[in-house]
Design a protein around this nucleic acid. Structure first.
Lengths: 216, 216
DNA sequence: GTGGTTTTTTACCATTTGGTCAAGGCACGA
DNA sequence: TCGTGCCTTGACCAAATGGTAAAAAACCAC
């Protein structure tokens, strides 16, 4: 029986990421496949990627990949599910505090750090959204949307209290995402246009940009 | 003879965009194909797009598409060439002036306007860069890079003269691109997360963001 | 070791895809 | 109106692609 199937051979849940007993080999090979798939999907999008490329990258045969995952789409969905969690984490940790400006700047730096640390994940996300988020709008609706609403309300309260400067909270977050993820998503362009120490310069500039915006 | 071939049936130049005599029909059909291809390529990337989709979108048969263009790649290259011109235009018009802040804010608004007016073009560009800019790094090197260097020098002089606030000129431009193009490239996400009048709010926020950054 | 289970591979299939070809349709100047 | 040459298409092809079947190989508890 293939390890991606449920006990009844058919999972009611779409992907069934619930932990089923997995041998060491299964864990290792699923991880290998997901890592290779992240390379491929983030670089070419879902439709542009092939199982052969993923199998090659994972160092195994195509049928063996399909032994561990239900198909191309299942791999993609699995990646996206895992990604959403880690991706929203920094926003989740944004809490009410006595130093709202510091909290927001921490968020900015955390997002920028992720762009340099996990560029493939950023590009996978960007690729999916760029193509209309066909496999992710449910996630965006059910996970990101309420989280963003909550944090925007919080930011709005900070602004009303005069603790940070006023601007549109929602579009503030959009611009934080845009500027930080740019370094991962447009890395190919940045590399051509900037020979210098990109990360250092980015950190300084991004800090300046949002600090000047938000300082009351 | 097919209209994309040079006089010798083989163009030395890669795509040969030099104007060859084209009939009304040729102009109309090439335009139709390019428009359909823009839809498809911007939504699915190069590898994920098919000639059939383009032919369907253009309302003609696949062999007819190949009568007008040398192949899938030639269509893509043709789109990219046309795009680079229009895309760099706002940056080209950034000139030395007595009111540098206004000039930069004009640039910001021009870029933002393009995102809302030509979202497909923005996504085509993003898609290409996201995938490592395999067909565009020559353009970036030869066209964009020198243009950016020149404009960064100009911005740097404005900063040294104290006419605008100091920050890294190169990364200032990066952040302008990032924030403005975000509304086109991540439109699917923005739509889910913001029910309001996106464009109005974006214009106001982006204006605030960069005005606060640059005001001395 | 042995037997059953898990893992891997070889061979294969149907569909899609980029592209070709030769023939038919059509426009338009003489 | 007639023929020449531009335009269009149906039929086709080879390669790529997602996926399957079944047997071989590796593994592991006993």
């Amino acid at each position: 029986m293939s390890p991606h199937d449920g006990p009844l051979g058919e999972s009611t849940d779409g992907e069934a990421d619930r932990p089923r007993p997995r041998s060491r080999i299964q864990k290792r090979n699923r991880a290998r496949i997901l890592d290779a798939a992240l390379d491929v999907f983030s670089a070419q999008g879902f439709r542009g990627s092939t199982l052969d490329q993923i199998a090659d990258g994972a160092g195994m045969s195509k049928p063996n990949v399909l032994y561990y995952f239900d198909g191309k789409e299942a791999i993609h969905v699995s990646l996206l599910n895992a990604l959403m969690d880690r991706w929203l984490d920094p926003l989740r940790t944004l809490q009410d505090t006595d130093a709202p400006l510091d909290a927001l700047m921490d968020y900015v730096h955390a997002k920028l750090d992720m762009s340099f640390t996990m560029p493939r994940e950023s590009r996978l996300f960007a690729s999916e959204v760029l193509q209309g988020a066909p496999r992710m709008s449910p996630h965006l609706e059910s996970d990101l949307r309420p989280l963003l609403d909550e944090k925007c309300a919080l930011i709005g309260r900070w602004m009303e209290a005069g603790r940070i400067a006023r601007t549109d909270p929602r579009h503030l977050v959009f611009s934080i995402w845009a500027v930080t993820q740019h370094y991962a998503d447009f890395e190919a362009q940045v590399r051509v246009l900037d020979d210098g120490p990109v990360r250092k310069a980015a950190e300084a500039h991004v800090d300046t940009l949002f600090r000047r915006l938000l300082t009351p």
